[in-house]
Design a protein around this nucleic acid. Structure first.
Lengths: 126, 126
DNA sequence: CTTACTGTATTAAGTGAGTAATACACCTGT
DNA sequence: ACAGGTGTATTACTCACTTAATACAGTAAG
């Protein structure tokens, strides 16, 4: 189950990103239990402290809730879940626009490529 | 003229990205002289060695050419210029698709957001 | 009660990429 | 010849991130 992490990016940030994605897709449902720090560390092949750091930040961002001596859970707050989704989406759009604009590429050409790539990916996966 | 660099990302990589964009848009034309390492460093407020590292990698990627004791120049090879553009574009598309797919967002919603954001940005800038 | 998990905190050390400081060899114009 | 500009190379320093080793308090189940 160990993920392949990009060495250029801090692992704890990648862990957070991973959880955000799964929360956004409801793959991790609101209220659902998540692995303990030590367990996650074992699963991902990272140090428990790194897992702790990721969880701590997620807690601060209210992505997860933690009670005493009980496995942490995904937040029950639907608004936060939706917020995560919209933030991820907006970030993707913004970054994309910025990149495309920097190259000076025309919109039709770009949208065409997206639809094409999206269609291909869809076939391969689902 | 000093740029605002993202501290999370190595400066020399951001410098390279900057040049790639300008080359792709022909803002930096083939054969055009570019600032010396020290001059660029002064302009961007970075260390000359950082500029050197960026130039060195760009040289390896054949984005620029360097002769002895003469200011480096943008490559004359049009194919490379076009390659840069297509690579940047494809990278943007790929990354975008990946992000969107990870969230499980439907294509129409996404394309709509792009067109909307693109239109707004266009108004603000140009 | 004991055991074995939880989450949390502290401290330290290691690691590596990025950056910086410095020096060198070279060419050119004056 | 000299001064000032090239590109280049070598060597250190720096800092964030990661890992590590413990330690402690609390809950749950046996």
């Amino acid at each position: 189950m160990s993920y392949e992490f990009d060495q250029r990016i801090p692992v704890y940030l990648q862990v957070i990103a991973l959880f955000k994605q799964r929360i956004a897709t409801r793959e991790l449902a609101p209220g659902q239990e998540i692995p303990s720090r030590r367990e996650l560390a074992a699963q991902l092949g990272i140090n428990p402290n790194t897992a702790q750091r990721a969880y701590k930040e997620m807690e601060e961002q209210q992505l997860i809730t933690t009670e005493r001596n009980v496995p942490s859970r995904i937040t029950m707050d639907e608004r936060i879940v939706e917020k995560i989704r919209s933030e991820l989406l907006e970030a993707a759009v913004t970054e994309f626009i910025q990149s495309v604009q920097a190259i000076g590429a025309p919109l039709p050409e770009v949208v065409g490529k997206i639809e094409q790539a999206y269609a291909n990916r869809g076939k391969q996966h689902a």
